[in-house]
Design a binder for these strands. Sequence first.
DNA 1: GACTATGTTCGACAGTGATCGAACATCCCA
DNA 2: TGGGATGTTCGATCACTGTCGAACATAGTC
Lengths: 100, 100
Amino acid sequence: MSTDSRRPAADSELQRALDAVGDPVRRSILRQLAAADPWTIACGQFDLPVGKSTLTHHFRSLVEAGLLEQRDEGNRRMNRLMRDEFDRRFPGLLDLVLDQ
Amino acid sequence: MSTDSRRPAADSELQRALDAVGDPVRRSILRQLAAADPWTIACGQFDLPVGKSTLTHHFRSLVEAGLLEQRDEGNRRMNRLMRDEFDRRFPGLLDLVLDQ
DNA sequence: GACTATGTTCGACAGTGATCGAACATCCCA
DNA sequence: TGGGATGTTCGATCACTGTCGAACATAGTC
């Protein structure tokens, strides 16, 4: 690994994390994801007021920030919130989002 | 008080906090402020690569997010990081910024 | 094989916000 | 009282990003 998660995250990583979490649509994704079991929700199943292509955009942002992981299951793309991993890198940040 | 700091902060407050902390210039302000004693640094004394009017803009953002407090001392406008207050509303967020 | 469902890619567009410089206001000091 | 220092306000600009729709790709189904 090139990054040591016990060392403080570089500012560019923090920037990406804050950007990811700074959008209300993405926060809604994170909350809906946290309320369900891992790998049970496909991208199109979220209750969100945006179109498909916008959704793709937001998911990319979340994946790049290390907030969620995706896996293809036939037709659909399933999601898992990377809660523990993200908590280790940025303690407290995700909790802040999920506690409304 | 209209807001109870023990209740989870409303999403609009969280939005303002994340926006404030999401800018690299503002994070630099917060770090320089944390490294000094309260009320010892005036706005113009920060080491930052932006002009005066931009500075004013960033300070307004930080004040509105409840991250710092200002006080006029004659000519200059002194600053204090509202660390405890902000930590109570958004536990862990400021630490994330200050730990580089 | 045709049709449907699920996602991605691409180009365009609009709103937001970070930035600047010029002008202004205030305060301090000589 | 005049000059310098410190900040603010205002208007303009520019880049970024969230948004959309259309076209495309792929997988499942009848």
